[in-house]
Design a protein around this nucleic acid. Structure first.
Length: 546
RNA sequence: GCGCCUGUAGCUCAGUAGGAUAGAGCAACUGCCUUCUAAGCAGUGGGUCAGGGGUUCGAAUCCCUUCAGGCGCGCCA
């Protein structure tokens, strides 16, 4: 619909010898404003030094392909409002059904390769709700970009080296000893969650007393590896059950083992961005706009957390993606300038990495904040929330918000709402359509060739409104892809379902009028195609029955 | 102190590459199940778009400023 109007206007502008960078088309806010509107005449007013309404008139007079419109009007200060003809709308619905996804989805990506890194939670504990938000957003974004013609790779970065996994190993070692009946003090900073006991018990089960007389130093490698690997499996399971999939898992440890950390710093050194001061090795981040230079090797000779991240991002660059996306929790936003400094130091524009922030989730229960301290072991896991309120509902709560807006997730509210959650409203529309179809089949009604169905029988205001809504999906989709905002799809689906349910209530689809029945079945088919397309992008299920 | 995010209906949030009279869900109240699924439908009430300036044909949207909340500002990760 938009594409068509755009090309019509482009032709018109060519005919009038007007050059204009981009013709803005927007959805009419009110039905009396037609279907699509453009404010272009107002923008041209200054350039052409003519009143906007006069310009609008000239444009309208020069439109050659008028037959696809029912009417074209000038309104307000100079808007041009276009209303499409019914015949055009009907033919578009048939095209929608015939082409399916390719009608709905715009090819924005043109096969460009994009990598999205998300979740990347430390394998030192189960995923919590904040990770769940990142997971829901990241996978919806990946589906969205994939649908928008990008070649997408989803990656999870595993922090399996360094202090945190070591601390997990120490914690597990302590519990292992305690559970074996020895007097062993638990480290002050250790992880205290119940899962630490689970790991210790698993070790007892597997290895028995084998490490009972060891000092930690002697059993270190085993305890660290066993612990983080068990946690990682746990995380992978949580993600699977949440319906989130990754293509690649990049290990931090591997970056060390393959000397990539070392080589990255060497490369920066060759480029002149590394220097020594106060016994430490620094990266000249200020050269690229960061507030301060950053230490990569500490005085004690250890790498900082930043060092493997340099190697990691160099590796991403080397994979030659057209676009890199990192999805981080907003508490890491201070980290953006230094990573973009790294990107630039390696000779790439900072725009080649796009960091999307997922804002904090405050978890509440009945209006009271729930502590989320990982170290203290007091936190509600993603799994617990999903078990309590359901995966689709949880995802939907995340996906009805912009990723960068703060989110209050109240377990009691989510649970209370889960029975009447908007996600069911959308899914129910799909299920209802199925039930209409099976009812039609029972009545012996079959549509052999939908192309031959007379959609001209769809004349009620509800039907026309719904047809127009369906035809705006490509616009919403395109906007969502460009803005990298899956939530636009969520809202669209709610609006579409919000048209279908009243329609269902007001008009019977299957009636004695066979031709009308067929036309309505075709419309239902179109609605279902769009609902399913949207649900699939969001990573939500589309149950056939509810 | 500096930086980032946020402030829209009682609550949770859309609307932000400037566009016409600011929307939805929930909550509240009133009705609707012998007819394709009541996880549904119809109706009612609800606003100083945090405040103040500015930019222009036009601002919830852009700029400045004040206020409020969140998060960051380590040779931690």
């Amino acid at each position: 619909m938009k594409k068509k109007l755009n090309s019509v206007l482009q032709d018109t502008f060519n005919a009038l010898a007007i050059t204009f960078p981009e013709i803005i088309l927007e959805l009419a806010k009110e039905e009396s404003f037609g279907d699509l509107a453009t404010p272009v005449a107002m923008s041209l007013s200054k350039i052409l030094k003519k009143p906007p309404r006069k310009i609008a008139e000239d444009i309208i007079n020069s439109i050659s392909e008028k037959n696809i419109f029912e009417k074209i009007e000038i309104a307000g200060p100079g808007f041009i409002n276009f209303t499409f003809s019914k015949a055009y709308l009907y033919s578009e619905i048939k095209a929608l059904i015939k082409m399916g996804s390719s009608f709905l989805r715009e090819d924005i990506g043109k096969n460009r390769r994009v990598q999205i890194e998300f979740v990347s939670a430390n394998p030192t504990g189960p995923l919590h709700l904040g990770h769940g938000r990142g997971a829901a957003f990241g996978s919806a974004l990946s589906n969205l970009l994939e649908a928008g013609g990008y070649d997408v790779e989803c990656e999870y970065y595993i922090n399996d080296a360094g202090r945190q996994v070591k601390l997990l190993g120490i914690s597990v070692f302590a519990r292992y000893n305690q559970l074996s009946g020895r007097d062993y003090s638990f480290p002050e900073e250790g992880y205290k969650g119940g899962y630490v006991d689970d790991i210790a018990r698993a070790i007892i089960k597997n290895a028995g007393n084998k490490y009972s007389d060891c000092r930690f130093e002697d059993a270190e490698a085993f305890f660290i590896d066993f612990s983080y690997k068990m946690m990682l499996e746990n995380i992978k399971k949580d993600l699977r059950d949440f319906g989130v999939a990754f293509n690649t898992w990049q290990s931090e440890r591997e970056l060390y083992q393959k000397s990539e950390v070392e080589h990255s710093i060497d490369e920066l050194r060759r480029k002149g961005y590394i220097y020594e001061q106060d016994g430490a090795i620094w990266f000249k981040a200020t050269e690229f706009g960061d507030d301060k230079d950053r230490v990569v090797i500490k005085k004690d000779g250890e790498y900082t957390y930043f060092a493997p991240d340099i190697a990691y991002h160099r590796k991403k660059i080397e994979k030659k993606f057209d676009e890199l996306i990192d999805i981080w929790g907003a508490d890491h936003h201070g980290y953006i300038p230094r990573i973009q400094a790294v990107i630039q130091a390696f000779g790439y524009p900072k725009e080649s990495l796009r960091v999307l922030l997922v804002q904090m989730v405050s978890l509440l229960r009945g209006g009271k904040p729930v502590s989320m301290s990982k170290r203290a072991g007091e936190f509600v896991t993603l799994r617990e929330v999903v078990d309590e309120v359901g995966a689709d509902t949880t995802k939907f709560i995340f996906l009805t918000r912009r990723s960068d807006s703060h989110l209050e997730f109240d377990l009691e509210v989510a649970k209370a709402q889960s029975a009447e959650n908007p996600v069911f409203y959308v899914q129910y529309a799909n299920a209802r359509i199925n039930s209409i179809f099976s009812h039609a089949r029972e009545q012996g009604i079959h549509i052999d060739k939908f192309e031959e169905t007379d959609l001209g029988l769809l004349t009620t205001p509800e039907e026309l409104r719904m047809i127009k809504k369906l035809l705006t999906y490509p616009m919403i989709f395109e906007g969502a892809v460009i803005a990298h905002e899956p939530h636009r799809i969520t809202f669209y689906l709610q609006e579409l379902a919000g048209m279908f349910h009243p329609y269902y209530h007001k008009h019977k689809v299957v009636t004695d009028d066979i031709n009308l029945t067929k036309a309505r079945l075709v419309l239902c088919e179109a609605v279902q195609i769009v609902l399913k397309d949207g649900l699939e992008i969001l990573g939500l299920s589309a149950p056939a029955k509810m």
